[in-house]
Design a protein around this nucleic acid. Structure first.
Length: 550
RNA sequence: GCGCCUGUAGCUCAGUGGAUAGAGCAUCAGCCUCCGGAGCUGAGGGCCAGGGGUUCGAAUCCCUUCAGGCGCGCCA
């Protein structure tokens, strides 16, 4: 719907006035009584054309009224142009949707642009928690949208398998292991707590026996570190797979060192003149690119800071040929954005080619009361627990019912309840219900058993006003899809689906699909099929299943 | 102290330059001889945190105050 309107508006404007360039035609959904779509275009043109907005609008309407797309085009208020589409056009679009299905629903805004989206990237030092789950749901949904919109997408998980964190994990497991063997070893003060450390120690014991009893950590560090982090990584992989989130690539930090990319990254920055020495350290002049202060890359003791391999990492991403990078980070890392952005610009890439989406905290309630979580004490709710408790579909949908940068509260009691408080069931139920209607129709012999029969033409008079409302909602899906993709906001899909499901449930209660009148029944079944196509596409974008039965 | 995010109905949140600001939950009142009641119908509920500005028009943009969250290391 929007696509047609946009095209015809652009042509009409070009014909009316050659002197004014219109780069973006704004189209919005007005209140229902005004029409199907509207544009404030004339108001924006008033100033450059030096004419009254209503006069411009009238002229546009004159030029447009010949089109058979519309039943009505009129000017309202200060200069809005409101469009009501003709029934023959709407029915034609319905038939197109039924035949071409998903091809009608997606908007090709990507045009083959290569885009990498990196998300989760949890340290392999503990199980995934709720925040990681939210990032996973967001990243996977966004990747689906981008892929569907014609981008070439890669999903990557970055493994922090070098440095302090995995070392601390190894140290913690080492201490537990010695404890199991009755050795007197002090547990590291900043070590990882939580039951999984004991489990790792037991697994280590089972695999290696008492070979390492009493041995000093430094002497056997690699054995403990590698065992522990690889185990954790397997667990993370499995959690994500069970959550329905799959990655294309897993980039190891160690590999960056091994391939000498960290050195090369520094050398590259140095060659470009962005590095200086000060008090025995090597500094990156990130303030040249909008950062608050310059950043150390090589410390006085010769070690790298955390930032340094990260620069090398992002440099590698670009060398793989991506036009745009999206990173999904926890909101507590927001202070890190400006320096990363600075590094990317310093390496010669445009600022816009790097975008960070922040995911805010997830807090858990149980019966209205907050559940305390402390990562240091090892007390937190894992993704695994919530997934087991309420199911992956439910979890993914819930994570996508908010904008990613707003706090999310999940009440486990509410989420567990299979009730109307639970939005995912509401949407899935609409889908299952349509399927159930089809089964009924087949039983009654009014529907060809397997072929999705679509007629050549359809009489517009077969549909009533409520059905046209529902149909228009379906035809607005591509507009929503486009907005969600361009703004990188998958939650828009979630809201749309809830609205559509709501409209369908209403329709279902008001009208019988299978009636005594054959043409009406056929027309309604076609409409239901169209609703089903859209629901399924939206749910697929979110990574949520569309069950035939519930 | 500085920076970022947030502040919209009792609660959880949409809406980020357009018309009379929306949804779900909760509350109250209704709907099962009928394709699935995980559903539907209706009612009440708002100085969009406060103040100032920008313009034809502001919940939305700018300034400021207040409240909450998170950052601010040659840690990762």
């Amino acid at each position: 719907m929007e696509r047609h309107l946009r095209t015809i508006l652009r042509e009409t404007c070009a014909a009316l006035s050659a002197e004014v360039q219109i780069d973006a035609i704004e189209i919005q959904i007005p209140k229902e009584e005004f029409g199907d779509l509207s544009t404030p275009l004339a108001m924006g043109l008033a100033k450059p054309l030096r004419r009254a907005p209503r006069a411009i609008a009238e002229q546009l309407v004159q030029a447009l009224s010949a089109s058979d797309l519309f039943e009505k085009v009129d000017v309202a208020g200060p200069g809005f142009i409101n469009f009501t589409f003709s029934k023959s056009f709407l029915v034609g679009e319905l038939l197109r949707l039924l035949v071409e299905q998903d091809a009608v629903l997606r908007e090709s805004v990507g045009a083959g642009k290569r885009i990498q989206i990196e998300f989760v990237s949890a340290n392999p030092t503990g199980p995934l928690h709720l925040g990681h789950g939210r990032g996973a749901a967001l990243g996977a949904a966004l990747a689906n949208l981008l892929d569907e919109a014609g981008y070439v997408v890669e999903k990557e998980f970055y493994i922090n398998d070098a440095g302090r964190q995995v070392r601390l994990l190894g140290l913690s497991v080492h201490a537990k292991y010695q404890e199991l063997l009755g050795q007197n070893v002090l547990f590291p003060e900043d070590g990882y707590r939580g039951d999984y450390i004991s489990l790792l120690a037991e697994a280590f014991l089972a695999q290696h026996g008492e070979t390492y009893a009493g041995k000093d950590f430094e002497a056997v560090a690699d054995a403990f570190i590698d065992f522990a982090y690889l185990r954790m990584l397997d667990a993370i992989r499995k959690d994500l797979a069970d959550f329905g989130v799959l990655f294309d690539t897993w980039q190891s930090e160690r590999e960056l060192y091994r391939d000498n990319l960290v050195e090369q990254g520094i050398a590259d920055l140095r060659r470009r003149g962005h590095i200086y020495e000060h008090e025995g350290a090597a500094w990156f002049r990130s303030t040249d690119f909008g950062d608050d202060k310059d950043r150390v890359l090589v410390k006085q003791d010769g070690d790298y800071t955390y930032f340094t391999p990260d620069i090398a990492y992002h440099r590698k991403k670009f060398e793989k040929g991506f036009d745009e990078l999206i990173d999904i980070w926890g909101a507590d890392h927001h202070g890190y954005i400006s320096r990363m952005s600075a590094a990317i610009q310093a390496l010669g890439h445009p600022k816009e080619s790097f975008r960070v989406l922040l995911v805010q905290l997830v807090s858990l309630l149980k019966g209205g009361h907050p559940v305390q979580m402390s990562k240091r004490a090892g007390e937190f709710i894992t993704l695994r627990e919530i997934m087991d408790e309420i199911g992956p579909d439910n979890t993914r949908f819930l994570f996508l019912t908010r904008r990613s940068d707003s706090h999310l509260e999940i009440d486990i009691e509410v989420a567990r309840a299979q009730s109307n408080e639970n939005p995912v069931f509401y949407v899935q139920y609409a889908h299952a219900r349509i399927n159930s209607i089809f089964e009924k129709a087949e039983d009654a012999g009014v529907l060809p058993v397997d072929a999705p029969f679509v007629p050549e033409t359809l009489e517009p008079a077969l549909y009533n006003d409520d059905e046209y409302r529902l149909l228009k909602k379906l035809l607005l899906y591509p507009m929503m899809f486009r907005g969600a993709t361009l703004s990188r906001e998958p939650h828009r899909v979630t809201f749309y689906l809830q609205e559509l499901a709501g409209m369908f449930h209403q329709y279902y209660h008001k009208y019988r699909v299978i009636t005594d009148d054959a043409p009406t029944t056929a027309a309604r079944l076609l409409l239901c099929r169209a609703v089903k196509i859209v629901l399924r596409h939206g749910l697929r974008m979110l990574g949520v299943s569309a069950p035939e039965k519930m």
